[in-house]
């Protein structure tokens, strides 16, 4: 592929997945600015793959993997501040885009509970229910069997449900 074609493809991929990758980062780090930086960084790393002529069969999967690794690095560098502390300090996770109060409260509640399940479970929940990825797509990202992924999604959702009941 010519370099100019590669650049064009890269920009098309950015347009298609920028919001999804940002969301993924946002729910991991609970900070809009950090999530923006992380999104930019993820696409820069993705460009390095493309530029070096590496075969990118599933850009979405690769981008999620890069973003996931960036989030893990971030967690390692700085033990995640609990969302409770962030909210107490005035952090507002919702974009306040006209949702009703009840919905915003639930939204906040889910955000508060998400860090209480494992990273893998968070990913499964976000990919399946926020990003609408099919179990097959998720299986491709994780390099696992579709059935295994379906079972794990179900378990992750049950865990979150239990947390909601007790909260």
């Amino acid at each position: 592929m010519e370099l100019n074609d590669t650049k064009k493809t890269f920009i098309d991929i950015y347009e298609a997945y920028a919001d999804a990758i940002f969301r993924h980062c946002f729910f991991k780090v609970s900070d809009r600015e950090r999530a923006q930086d992380m999104t930019q960084q993820a696409f820069m790393q993705f460009w390095t793959y493309m530029k070096d002529g590496q075969n990118v069969e599933n850009p979405k999967a690769l981008l999620y993997r890069i973003a996931g690794n960036l989030a893990i690095d971030w967690y390692r560098k700085k033990k995640a501040e609990s969302l409770d502390n962030l909210i107490d300090a005035g952090f507002e996770p919702s974009d306040s885009r006209g949702e009703n109060i009840e919905q915003t409260a639930e939204f906040k509640n889910v955000l508060r509970l998400l860090p209480q399940i494992s990273q893998d479970e968070q990913n499964l929940i976000l990919w399946r229910f926020v990003e609408d990825l099919s179990p097959k797509d998720i299986a491709e990202i994780l390099n696992e069997r579709e059935n295994t992924v379906s079972v794990r999604i179900h378990r992750a959702l049950e865990r979150l449900k239990d947390l909601m009941k007790t909260s």
């Binding site: 969301r23 949702e99 919905q103 939204f107 889910v110 976000l126 926020v130």
Partner: peptide, 8 residues
């Protein structure tokens, strides 16, 4: 609720 998170 999770689906509404897509609005972010």
């Amino acid at each position: 609720i999770l689906k509404s998170m897509k609005e972010v």
